[in-house]
Simulated assay, not measured.
Amino acid sequence: MPELVDLDPARQKEIIDLEKAQEGRDYFALLGLKPGAPVEEVKQAFIEAALKYHPDRYAGLNLGTFRARIERIFRRISEAHTVLSNPEKREAYLRANPRLRGGPAPSPVPSGLEEPLLGDEERRAERQSRLSRHPYLARTHRLTELLTRGKAAFARGDFEKAFADLNQVVNLDPKNREATALLAEVRKKHDEQRSKVEMQRGMDLEKQQDLPKALESYRKASSLDPHHAEAAYRAARLAKALGMEWNEIRIHAQRAVDVSPDTVAYRLLLAQVLLDGKAGNLAKRHLEAVLKLDPKNAEATALLRKSRWPF
């Protein structure tokens, strides 16, 4: 008996018959194609199947058990398309199933038939163009194109381009987990790359004795990459030399030590900053840590003496 769902009995029978017919079929047959069909035909067949069986086409309908049937049908169709439209996967599949490579090349077109065949080709191209303008397929194609481009840009280190493409994917499809995860990774790599640029710029400006601009570059580098200890250290050192606000100096110096606690220079600078801020007890702990790392460090010894007897 037909199920009480938002599908007419004929449509229900069509879906049931197709699901059964898919069992044991090869990928070409799943798409209704002859063995060895070219990639262009594979893509066209998938587009036509997607228009009928993509689960999104049935959103909001009461489908009962047919929802699972439709999802299984489309999953097999998608699997066939993924393999047969990818050169490497297709070749591997054909090596495992040599009988599916197709028969001999077709015979030459008899004289006098060229014109009708040309008309068939034009009609096929027109139909494909019309299908490509379907809103759902156009959106799906756009998302796939952007995601592929974003991955390629990420792989070659063009993080700015990757960010732009992946950000568009997330804006168009906020539930796309792959794009969201990739975007977070790209943003991190992009910021790290920009941090390195700002760090080098700061070093160049410092050599030119343009200390205010050098400090600004070190600040940016540290902000873009909070794990860049050297950028934080240089920002603290220049901020101290330029007489900037004590708390800003302390924040940069503390960040450098947090990221790289075993670097003597970072500990010494933080201790000096803490002494300037009358935080002798905190400074003492850092100086003692320096002397554990470098027992003969004269500067740490002198500062430790000062922290105990400030007079």
Rank of each mutant, 00 (worst) to 15 (best):
P98H: 00
R99S: 15
R99W: 08
L100N: 02
L100V: 01
G103C: 01
P104A: 09
A105T: 08
A105R: 04
P106M: 11
S107N: 13
S107D: 11
P108Q: 05
P108G: 10
P108Y: 06
V109E: 04
V109L: 15
P110D: 07
S111Q: 12
S111V: 13
G112D: 01
E114A: 13
E114F: 01
E115N: 10
P116K: 09
L117D: 07
L118R: 15
D120V: 10
D120Q: 11
E121W: 01
R123H: 12
R123S: 10
R123N: 11
R124N: 04
R124K: 13
A125L: 13
A125W: 07
E126I: 04
E126W: 08
R127P: 10
Q128C: 09
Q128N: 14
R130F: 02
R133W: 06
R133K: 15
P135F: 01
P135W: 03
Y136L: 15
L137C: 03
L137V: 01
A138Y: 01
T140D: 13
R142T: 08
T144E: 14
T144M: 11
T144H: 15
T144Y: 07
L146Y: 02
L147F: 07
L147I: 09
T148H: 09
T148G: 15
R149D: 12
K151Y: 10
